[in-house]
């Protein structure tokens, strides 16, 4: 397991990193390295230059501004897991973080790296969709903001261009109840299916439900059909059963030696139902 030769540069500011990206043909950003380094070792990717952004302090940290949580792309999973602010402002994110990998992985892997990598079995994409995260991307001409629903474009691909860097992620910070349920692949610990759900309810009536699903398909998605069937209705076990039973309608699920497509679609339905049950107590 030896990567092909590459050059390495540590950037100390976003500007410097962007500059390096622009001036090198075949460069790649290195964040926590927990997806990139295994790919390098397998020689699946052979960039000429790695630009390490893990030393850029402005990319790291969690703060609240105008009711929103703002999380630097270089913030580690572990920092999110341990953050009181996240626990208070976004129970869903707080529920996801401790379910990623193991403690060692969470100490290195980053929120932004995981989103940028867009692994179909990654955990964060489901949550980013469910909280309708806004992703701030810096490039040559300043920054642009993209909604999670438009961010993921395919398996391992996003709207981030080769000369751009994901800098921060904004998520609603009003503490909406949320939960992440994960069916782990027994070998890798990644999500066979992961279901991220937020829900509000008041006096027996559902306010808004959002559901992000990862693992089932090449790209994480929002289960909008289920959301629509629930929003504004009175909570009942029957309603949740009925709505969740459509969670996998029309899905073209992934299939592998661990989980054939039929099993993944079963998991989507069951896990959506269970997450709703936990949040809506029915």
């Amino acid at each position: 397991m030896h990567p092909a030769p590459f050059a390495y540069k540590a950037a100390h500011s976003v500007e410097e990193a962007l500059q390096l990206l622009r001036s090198h043909e075949d460069a790649k950003i290195l964040a926590g390295g927990h997806s990139l380094i295994p790919a390098l070792k397998l020689r699946l990717t052979q960039p000429a230059l790695l630009i390490d952004i893990s030393k850029i302090s402005s990319l790291r940290g969690i703060r609240r501004e105008n009711g929103k949580l703002i999380i630097g792309s270089g913030t580690t999973h572990r920092e999110i897991e341990k953050s009181h602010l996240v626990a208070e402002a976004s129970p869903l994110l707080a529920s996801v973080a401790p379910q990623i990998g193991d403690v060692q992985v969470r100490h290195r892997g980053t929120f932004g790296g995981s989103l940028a990598h867009a692994d179909p079995a990654g955990d964060w994409p489901a949550a980013a969709l469910a909280v309708d995260a806004e992703l701030v991307i810096a490039g040559a001409h300043g920054t642009r903001t993209v909604h999670a629903s438009e961010f993921f474009t395919g398996m391992l691909t996003t709207v981030i261009q080769p000369d751009e860097i994901l800098t921060e992620i904004k998520v609603p910070g009003e503490g909406t109840p949320g939960i992440y349920l994960k069916h782990r692949n027994a070998a890798s610990g990644y999500a066979t299916v992961g279901v991220a759900v937020t829900a509000t309810h008041d006096h027996g009536r559902i306010g808004t439900v959002t559901i992000g699903v990862t693992g089932a398909t090449p790209v994480a998605f929002r289960a909008s059909v289920v959301e629509h069937a629930l929003n504004g209705h009175a909570v009942s076990a029957h309603l949740l059963d009925e709505a969740a039973s459509h969670a996998a309608d029309g899905l073209e699920c992934l299939s592998d030696i661990h989980a054939p497509a039929a099993y993944r679609s079963q998991l989507v339905k069951v896990m959506v139902r269970r997450a709703l049950g936990k949040l809506l107590h029915a």
Partner: peptide, 29 residues
Amino acid sequence: ALWEEAVYDENGQLLSGSLMDYAIPKASV
């Protein structure tokens, strides 16, 4: 009983060729 299996496809490729796909027991389970 529950997890481990070396799986080959019909051409003889080892599909469970790494710890990402071959499930050894973890302390947590």
